[in-house]
Design a protein around this nucleic acid. Structure first.
Length: 104
DNA sequence: AGCGCGGCTTTTC
DNA sequence: CGAAAAGCCGCGC
């Protein structure tokens, strides 16, 4: 219980619609500040893509990053834009909405 | 017990 | 501003 992946899913599940977080923040929030790479891997292993809004997790530099093994996935971009996050050239514009997620 | 891998991050040119 | 390289962490085999 409470394995790395579990922590990641648990945290990402708390990300509200219209908001977005970064892999790094997630890693820090779950208590593994340096395992940011691992976070991505966990999200890839995401057993419940619907429950775990892995599309609300993006790069720290504003890039949307990957989604289902696809970089700059239009699905991810579309989903985010539908939720209120504007993306341009695969980069997030509303960085104000980013990193505004409360810690778990 | 050891090695490689991955939806990242940050710095520098 | 855009691209490239190196560093890091936990998990699986």
């Amino acid at each position: 219980m409470s394995s790395f992946d579990e922590l990641v899913y648990d945290y990402v599940k708390t990300i509200p619609a219209g908001k977005v977080s970064t892999y790094k923040l997630v890693a820090e929030a779950i208590g593994h500040p340096g395992a940011v790479r691992r976070v991505g891997t966990s999200l890839k292993n995401n057993p419940t893509p619907i429950i775990v809004p892995c599309h609300r997790v993006v790069y720290s530099n504003g890039k949307v990053g990957y989604y289902f093994g696809e970089k700059d996935s239009q699905d991810k971009i579309k989903l985010l834009s539908e939720e209120g996050i504007e993306i341009k050239n695969g980069k997030i514009i509303d960085f104000n909405k980013v990193m505004k997620v409360d810690k778990i």
